[in-house]
Design a protein around this nucleic acid. Structure first.
Lengths: 189, 189
DNA sequence: TGTATTTTGTGAATTGTTTCACAATAGATC
DNA sequence: GATCTATTGTGAAACAATTCACAAAATACA
C-alpha cells in the first residue's frame, strides 16, 4: 500500500495498547526504529515474521469432530497465519462423512498421520469425559502442544504445552462485567 | 456426593493454582473458611454462585451463523452455566435453515428480539469486514457486552464491554511455545 | 549547514500480582 | 478438658508489568 514507516503510537492505536508498550516490546526483541523516523514497515514485518515463526508453516490436527471441531476444521483464517490443518479425527468418522469437507479419519490412524506430516500440535475438541484419555494418547504419539477446548485441566508432562480455551468462561466474564457496570450505574442515580 | 468440606490445597490442585492464591481470592471476596476446618462446600458454592451471578440466567444472542456461529449456537455446555441463547441472526437466514437447529432470524428482527428477551450480551461471529458495522448496530440496540470472535479491535463506547477471542492467536501461541521448547532442548544436546 | 521538532529507547517510579511466612484458631485426639 | 495439629487469613516481601519522563538521535526545514 506504499506505507514505508509506522510510529509506535500508530500501532498502539490499532492494537489498543500504549505507545510505550509497543516500544518496550520491540526493544525487548531487538527491533530498532529510527528516532524521528519511526519503524520501517518492511523490516518490521520481517522481524515479526521471524519472532512468531510466521515464515514457516505448521501442521496441526483436529481431534474430536463435534460442532466445535467441525467449525475449527473449516475456519479459513488459519491458513493465512501459517496454521495448516492436515487431518481431523473422531472415534466415529462415518458420522461426519456427509459433506465434501476435510477428511475425518478414525482415531486408529492418528499415529500414522502425525508421523507422516510431522505434526506436533493438536487441537483437542472432544467431550469432557474423554479429554484426558485422548490427551494421553496424543502425548504418547509425540504431540508437544495442545489447544484444549474441553473444560478440563489436562495432566501432561512438563515438556507438553497446553493452552486452555473455555468458551463458557469467555461469555460469562462479559455477562459479569455488564452486570457489574449496570449495578455501578444505578448507584449514581 | 456427601463432601461437606474442602481445603484450599484441594481446590488449588484441581484448578492448577497455588493454595495461597485460592485463599487470597476467597478472602478478597469475603469468603470465610474455618482454620483447620477448611471451607464448607455448601456455603462456598452459594457464595460463588452469587459472585458469578450463577443464580440468574442470562439471555444472549449469536450474530453471524457461519461455521463458528453455528457451532456456538449448538454448544450444549452453555446451558449449565446459565448462558441462554435465545436467538441467532444472519444477513441470509435462509442459507442456514437446513436442519432442525435453533432458529436463524434475519438481522431486521434483532431489535424486536433483543428487546423482548432483555438481551444485553451478544456473541459476534461475523466476517472481519462487517464486524465493526454489526457491532455499531448492536450497541445502538442497547447491547452492553460483546464476545468478539472476529480479529478486529472493535470501537465501542466506554460503557460497552468487549471480550476478544482470537482462535488463530490461541493456536499460534502453542505452536510458538513448542518451537521455543524444542530449540532450548537441542541446545542441551 | 544549523536549528527546531518529532519520535525512539530506556532507566526510574509506580502499580499490580504472587509468593512467603507465620500467628491465630478450630477441630481432632487422648 | 488439655494438648496437639492442620489449616486459614493476611501482612510483608519478592517479583512482574506498566507508565512516566526525558535524553539521544534522526529528519525536516529554513
Amino acid at each position: 500500500m506504499g506505507v514505508t514507516r509506522v510510529y509506535s503510537y500508530t500501532l498502539a492505536g490499532k492494537a489498543g495498547v500504549t505507545p510505550e508498550q509497543v516500544r518496550k516490546d520491540f526493544s525487548e526483541y531487538g527491533i530498532k526504529g529510527n528516532r524521528r523516523g519511526g519503524y520501517l514497515t518492511e523490516s518490521l514485518i520481517r522481524a515479526i515474521e521471524v519472532i512468531f515463526s510466521r515464515d514457516r508453516k505448521s501442521n496441526v490436527v483436529v481431534v474430536g469432530m463435534g460442532n466445535l471441531g467441525q467449525a475449527l476444521s473449516r475456519y479459513e483464517r488459519f491458513a493465512g497465519r501459517g496454521i495448516n490443518i492436515v487431518a481431523t479425527f473422531d472415534i466415529d468418522p462415518y458420522k461426519h462423512k456427509s459433506r465434501s469437507d476435510i477428511h475425518v479419519y478414525p482415531m486408529e490412524r492418528l499415529e500414522e498421520i502425525t508421523e507422516r506430516f510431522g505434526v506436533t500440535v493438536a487441537i483437542l475438541a472432544v467431550p469432557e469425559i474423554s479429554a484426558q484419555e485422548v490427551c494421553d494418547e496424543l502425548v504418547n504419539l509425540g504431540i508437544r502442544g495442545i489447544v484444549n477446548f474441553s473444560p478440563v485441566l489436562l495432566k501432561v508432562p512438563q515438556y507438553v504445552v497446553v493452552n486452555n480455551v473455555n468458551l463458557s468462561d469467555e461469555i460469562e466474564s462479559v455477562i459479569l462485567s455488564v452486570r457489574r457496570m449496570k449495578e455501578e450505574q444505578t448507584l449514581f442515580l
